[in-house]
Design a protein around this nucleic acid. Structure first.
Length: 476
RNA sequence: GGUCCCAUCGUCUAGUGGUUUAGGACGCUGGCCUCUCACGCCGGUAACACGGGUUCGAAUCCCGUUGGGAUCACCA
């Protein structure tokens, strides 16, 4: 396979997301994916997905699948790929040869142990650890354990023109002759990235801050290969509450964990994009807004801290803002886990309609929806003791009679029914509502009485009220 | 330790030399609404890290200090 080296073409923005499949997709990765995707979409460009699986020991098929699943759930789609670096080995070989031929690279047979001691000595004396160039001018041929090193300039400077951070200056003397091909023949990260980005026509590289120090090496490679540089933008990182890299001890990190905890993908997208990017005082965004409004210039320079509380409140906002159809669809899998029967979709929508303003997550919503679906509800012990007492016995019976007579359970009709019961018993609405609530839901907290009755419908309402009457009867 | 980056309420941020008694959101909090819980509405709390400059004027520009972070692999 022959890839032509394309000169950098900015007619169409081409971005990429290159995860290494060594685990699930975490929040930070999702955010860089999102920025690249958003930028490509907003510029009518292309977004490519590349799986960086040259680390044979750590890459797994499961991780690849997990990454696909997470991206799919977030709604981040790609135009090209997925490309697998493990399937592009001959391309890297070709570029290695080019570099070897032009003497920009050379074989090195120094043992890893030797390099290690070299590095430790340098660190101990406060110097940047660097390869000392033992094999640099030996003109070694390829051999069993040889690696290929890039011949770095030891003088001069390299400037990274970063669209987020501005110009960053590096002394070339800081950069040593780094390895571009391992002794097992696999390419090293910095080299593979450059070859891939060149051959895939990537012209815009948006990536985490932690890559800035790799950039001068990559630039050197571009230059040696005679290729034009992409536009670089290094996005500040996201930290945990203790201001260190987001990791397991900060709680859930994987994208799919948030799905399982009942978050809407809309909410996660919204939260992630606002971490580091802003559009004036706007807080709430849907994907289509973002595609219209996203720009690189509004990405901030300073790192941010992941705040689960804000994500949660944003999730509540998105649950409220979503259409009932959307919310129901998202809710359904959570209910199916708890309730095996087939759920009627219009009933489900009605249920969601009573819960979407009082649920911060879909999980919470599913829990709150359970009483609608159970055939026999269990009474919360405290609630039953407090509200299902003999004193409301007549009241509930009266209500049953009234509700029996009503043609349809509109709010207006219900109000009239309750009015009658109130008039006869002399009880205020507040005194009647709680017992009825417990009778209908088993709990002392629920959606409003009228919406409850309307959604549950005649059959369930009457049955549950009668059961409550029976319950009181048995107790006395 | 070397190199590099960053610095506005606890957190996310607006702000690009004067319109700012520094605005919004989350959180926390007082109240209203009310059939419970929520939603909603009204209000409060809280920040320009510090020190020098530049300027008529600085959160905004420059320098230094301090603090935080990233990175220094035959990982990506």
């Amino acid at each position: 396979m022959k890839d032509k080296i394309r000169s950098l073409n900015m007619d169409q923005i081409i971005t990429r997301f290159p995860p290494s499949p060594t685990g699930y997709l975490h929040l930070g990765g999702a955010r860089t994916a999102l920025f690249n995707w958003l930028y490509a979409r907003s510029k009518n460009g292309r977004f490519v997905l590349r799986i960086e699986d040259t680390d044979l020991a750590r890459s797994t098929k499961e991780s690849v699948d997990a990454i696909f699943k997470a991206l799919d759930w977030l709604g981040i789609d790609w135009d090209d790929g997925p490309f697998y670096q493990s399937e592009r080995l001959d391309i890297y070989k070709e570029y290695i040869k080019k570099l070897l031929d032009s003497e920009d690279a050379y074989y090195c047979t120094c043992s890893p142990e030797k390099i290690k001691t070299m590095r430790e000595a340098a660190k101990a004396s406060g110097q940047t650890p660097r390869y000392d160039g033992t094999c640099r001018d030996k003109g070694l041929k390829n051999s069993e354990k040889a690696v290929v090193r890039f011949r770095s300039d030891s003088f001069g400077t390299t400037v990274v023109e970063d669209v987020i951070k501005g110009s960053i200056l590096f002394q070339n003397s800081e950069i040593d002759d780094f390895i571009i091909q391992k002794s097992d023949g696999m390419p090293m990260y910095n080299f593979a990235v450059v070859v891939d980005d060149i051959t895939m026509g990537i012209n815009t590289v948006l990536r985490g801050d932690d890559h800035v120090s790799n950039t001068p090496k990559q630039i050197a490679l571009y230059k040696a290969l005679g290729c034009m540089l992409p536009v670089y933008g290094h996005v500040p990182m996201v930290f945990g509450k203790d201001r260190t890299r987001l990791s397991k001890r900060h709680g859930a990190m994987s994208v799919t964990a948030y799905r399982d905890m009942g978050y809407m993908p809309e909410a996660l997208i919204n939260y992630l994009v606002r971490l580091g990017w802003s559009h004036g005082d706007d807080e709430f965004f849907l994907k289509d807004d973002l595609i219209k409004k996203f720009n690189i210039k509004n990405i901030g320079k300073s790192p941010s801290i992941f705040d689960p509380e804000k994500l949660l409140s944003l999730n509540a906002e998105h649950i409220q803002a979503a259409s009932i159809e959307r919310t129901s669809a998202c809710l359904k899998p959570f209910l199916e886990e708890r309730h095996t029967d087939e759920i009627d979709s219009s009933y489900l929508s009605a249920i969601a309609g009573t819960l979407n303003k009082r649920s911060k997550t879909l999980l919470e919503m599913a829990d709150g929806a359970l009483f609608y679906l159970e055939n026999d509800i269990d009474y919360d012990k405290k609630a039953a003791e407090k509200f299902l007492k003999p004193i409301v016995y007549d009241c509930l019976n009266l209500l049953i009679d009234e509700l029996k007579q009503i043609a349809s359970y509109t709010q207006k009709n219900q109000e009239q029914a309750f009015k009658k019961v109130m008039d006869i018993t002399g009880l205020k609405f507040g005194k009647i509502a709680q017992p009825v609530r417990v009778a209908l839901t088993g709990k002392s907290v629920s959606p409003g009485i009228f919406e409850l009755i309307e959604v549950l419908g005649r059959e369930r309402v009457l049955k549950r009220l009668k059961n409550a009457v029976l319950y009181i009867d048995e107790k006395r």
